[in-house]
């Protein structure tokens, strides 16, 4: 982790300029492809952590399997997947925007009090 503690104001200006410059098309650095497989049992991922972390620019593919039909919705990127028993579903996107995005489940009898998963896209 680079030390951002010193000179926050100047770094803020640099970050602002960098953001403006990012509007100009540039050569992408080596973006990685991140593959995740999440197995939902009773609406919760069984083995995976509650938060997936990727880097801005990565190609992300999430494969979902579930023991019962459920409709999943990734907020922000607004993607849907509806895995069913024996029928996995996929969400694929390029992590263009940084932030923390929730995946929520909708379906018969869903009464979860937290989203299924969070995807955190960190800036490069």
């Amino acid at each position: 982790m680079s030390p951002y503690i010193a000179l926050p104001r100047q770094s803020c200006i640099i970050a602002l300029i960098a953001t403006l410059a990012a509007g100009v098309p540039s050569q992408p650095l080596a973006d990685e492809a991140e593959r995740f497989t999440l197995n939902l049992v009773d609406g919760q991922p069984r083995d995976a952590p509650q938060t997936l972390r990727v880097t801005e620019g990565d190609e992300v593919v999430i494969g979902w399997t579930s023991d019962r039909p459920v409709d999943l919705h990734l907020h922000g990127y607004d993607l849907r997947a509806s895995p069913e028993p024996g029928q996995p579903a996929e969400m694929a996107f390029r992590a263009r925007a940084s932030g923390r995005f929730a995946v929520e489940a909708h379906g018969a009898g869903e009464h979860r009090h937290r989203p299924v998963l969070y995807i955190e896209v960190y800036p490069k």
């Binding site: 953001t19 801005e56 896209v121």
Partner: peptide
């Protein structure tokens, strides 16, 4: 555009 402002900024 959800990427209008990036996280570091």
């Amino acid at each position: 555009d959800i990427g209008v402002i990036d996280a570091r900024t």
